[in-house]
Write a protein that binds this DNA or RNA. Sequence first.
DNA 1: GATGATTTGTACGTATGTATA
DNA 2: ATATACATACGTACAAATCAT
Lengths: 221, 221
Amino acid sequence: MAGMDVNKRKTLAERVKEQLAQAIVSGEILPGVTLDEGDIATRYGVSRTPVREAIRDLAAMGLVQVRPHRGAIVTRPEPQQLAHMFEVMADLEGLCAGRAARCMSIFEREELGRVQAHLGKMVRDNDIPGYRVANEEFHSTIYEGCHNRYLIEITLATRRRLSPFRRAQFMSAGRLARSYAEHDVIVSAIMRADEAGASAAMRAHILVVENTFEQMGFVPA
Amino acid sequence: MAGMDVNKRKTLAERVKEQLAQAIVSGEILPGVTLDEGDIATRYGVSRTPVREAIRDLAAMGLVQVRPHRGAIVTRPEPQQLAHMFEVMADLEGLCAGRAARCMSIFEREELGRVQAHLGKMVRDNDIPGYRVANEEFHSTIYEGCHNRYLIEITLATRRRLSPFRRAQFMSAGRLARSYAEHDVIVSAIMRADEAGASAAMRAHILVVENTFEQMGFVPA
DNA sequence: GATGATTTGTACGTATGTATA
DNA sequence: ATATACATACGTACAAATCAT
């Protein structure tokens, strides 16, 4: 039957990990906040054991930092470290786009065109939430198009680590239109299999996003 | 006193993790082998609790894979996945070299020159173990030269994941000389701050290493 | 396919180390 | 600086799931 087994039989540790990860990347739990094993255990109705395992997993993802005997805190990178991560994010997305330009099938390129057309509609409608969703799909389509599971893995991992520090909802209408125009450059480069062009265009696109963040001077409490 | 505190006060989980990681990357424990929590616990003289934490950490590093309720095995990637990782390793090292060409200080460039000169001596002496050590130093020098902590982090993490599948000790004398020549191209590009040149040269250099592995058709038992 | 053996997952108690008065 | 309080690290017991027969 369709949609069966949504509550897949997962371990408690896995479920706690997913919940905590979601809370962190969504900004529900802010960087710098300490994670108390006991509190979390009682809040989720489990013992401290799976909570500990979940926290260790989150630490390995870079979402939290554990200080031996002193508990874990949600990661709050130094501004420079954050800048480094944004720069590498741009490089990684550039690599994805370059490979996509080289490797995408005809069908995948057509799909990318449809995604970009949908983005255009969101811009014309000035539908910012819709744009954000379609934007995610745009980038995901290019990730998949790189045809390299490992590159996708580290790109997504980096994006997840940066999530707590993105505030794309602050995106202005002007930025929306410029973003769409940048996408157009990327798409056309991919369509003509211009690897270097696609890579450079994507890298520049992501760096603009970074600069937007930096201009905001956003520092989580 | 010199060399004090080698047994730094670490948690048991950390020490078990380090020991297991070393055993895995060195090939002492082969890919595909299952890790029995009980066995490991008794072998290290600890309880299962820190062993479980260590295994979860190793899983997050990609060194092992945990199947819920079915134990953990040392990661044995599919050949294609391994190829993907080698390709990305080349890209990452290329990014490091490109940034190094842009960012290295005068002093760092001089240091790189000394490291390369030392490599040359190893080649002339046909000292393969010495070359391997100096080669590690060469790449580490470039990693540091990229001045981006996060890029270094993911590059080292990728190298560690690939370690079980490297068998550089099989390097021939001819390959040694060619490797040194490739290094020369990289170094000269970095010296003249040629970012694109350094990046491309490094990427090509690593891809040659990959092909060497593939030609060997190495598949761990 | 059912049953027993083995291994993992979870709960809980105690010890140890850290922070605070 | 010492002691007290508290959170984490570790060990152990039990429950649940997998596997072997």
